[in-house]
Amino acid sequence: MIGPLALPRARSAEPSSGHPALEDAALVALVLEHDTSALEQLYARYGKPCYGLSRRILGDEQLAQDVVQEVFLTLWRDASRYDPSRGAFATWLLSMTHHKAVDVVRREENLRKRRLAAEAVEATASPQPEPDDAAWTGLRRDRVRAALARLPEPQREALGLAYYGGYTQREIAGLTGTPLGTVKTRMLAGMRKLRGVLETALDEGGER
């Protein structure tokens, strides 16, 4: 199982008050008791990646904010849905963000047409990260990009259309003119290969 891609426990941009040194699971436990500062701490850690991901999928800043808001309200309402034994909190939160953003993009079909504009926003308007974050983020992004780059183009395309585009397997088959069965096979092969490459990279890097 891979799991070490969780974000650092305490990031430099976090507020000085609250619970800056607590691990994610401990903060989630406090959120279960409706500790608002714990929720704000988790927002300080993960608000940016959640917003970045939803904005990438939706291509609309207002809808992306709505998704992030709904993600953190869901966390507040029912933090017990996170089970630490099943993976890192970051994975769970980003999965939820992805799921909600994809729900929205499917409701708002015309959003997909605006995605190119959104990618332009991504390229030009992303803020410069804090220095400490930059090192970590750069390492993490390089690793994932390298892993994706090692996939055969048809596999990378299928995974990209699904994850970043919010398309279903059947829609991808239609978009690429590929039989549905082939799309499913490519996605399975691509994900297995991605898992293997990421595990190898982590073993070589000797990181958490």
Binding site: M1, I2, G3, L5, T36, L39, E40, Y43, G47, K48, P49, Y51, G52, L53, R55, R56, Q65, V68, Q69, F72, L73, W76, G87, A88, A90, T91, L94, S95, T97, H98, E122, A125, S126, P127, P129, D133, T137, R140, R141, R143, V144, R145, A147, L148, L159, Y163, Y164, M191, L194, R195, L198
Partner: peptide, 30 residues
Amino acid sequence: EMRQVASSMAYDVADAEPPAELINRIRDAL
């Protein structure tokens, strides 16, 4: 396991600073 692999793809997307207003909206809705 596959959810963790899928979530790793999120790290290929640049973090983006949400507007400062967003945390206030979340607080207000709590």
